[in-house]
């Protein structure tokens, strides 16, 4: 039990990484794993949460924010990322700007068989689009979030953070 608690990825870690990397806006659709993160983001006076109706909108909205000189992050679940294919192509990759995409890795597990098809398609999707990604499961992985930001700034490309769902850390 103690081990499992230590392995949780705390929402505070994610928000601290956003602040450290100068994020101004989080464009998002909430999902069941990120509810507490959503509430925590709403409490930050330096951060604006931009809810959208469908994930495909998120990339265009982030692009517009970037044109305006802001630093957006897109926070959606892997299901929504799959829905967003053409938007990711046209409004993120082709637009050529630094963008960290925080993707809830629904269905992912280190143990046994992955039963949820969206988890099976998530990494192949990112590979098909040539988007590099970092798996983040627990607080100790927090530095990988900054690594993703640094890479996106250096390449002016989207870089993904896959948030492993194993410990349901965002739900506390």
């Amino acid at each position: 039990m103690v081990h499992q608690q230590a392995a949780i990825l705390r929402p505070e870690t994610m928000v601290a990484e956003f602040k450290k990397n100068g994020v101004t806006h989080v464009v998002t659709i909430p999902d069941s794993e990120t509810n507490y993160l959503y509430e925590l983001m709403e409490e930050q006076d330096w951060l604006e949460v931009v809810p959208v109706s469908r994930e495909g909108e998120a990339w265009g909205t982030a692009f517009g924010l970037n044109v305006a000189g802001k630093v957006p992050v897109v926070l959606v679940q892997n299901t929504g990322m799959l829905e967003s294919g053409d938007s990711i192509r046209g409004m993120a990759i082709d637009a050529g700007f630094p963008l960290v995409m925080v993707i809830g890795y629904r269905g992912w597990t280190r143990r046994g068989v992955i039963a949820d098809s969206v988890a099976r398609y998530t990494e192949p999707f990112l590979n098909a689009f040539g988007i590099n990604y970092y798996l983040v499961e627990q607080n100790e992985d927090g530095e990988r979030i900054s690594t993703a930001f640094e890479e996106s700034r250096a390449t002016s490309r989207p870089v993904a953070i896959l948030v492993g769902d194993e410990y349901h850390g965002f739900n506390r």
Partner: peptide
């Protein structure tokens, strides 16, 4: 004048982002 197109229907969302940022 700014061109924000690039994906079907997404100019609307890009314009929203621009409005929020400016």
């Amino acid at each position: 004048d700014v061109s924000l197109g690039g994906a079907m229907g997404q100019t609307t969302s890009a314009a929203l982002g621009l409005a929020l940022g400016l």
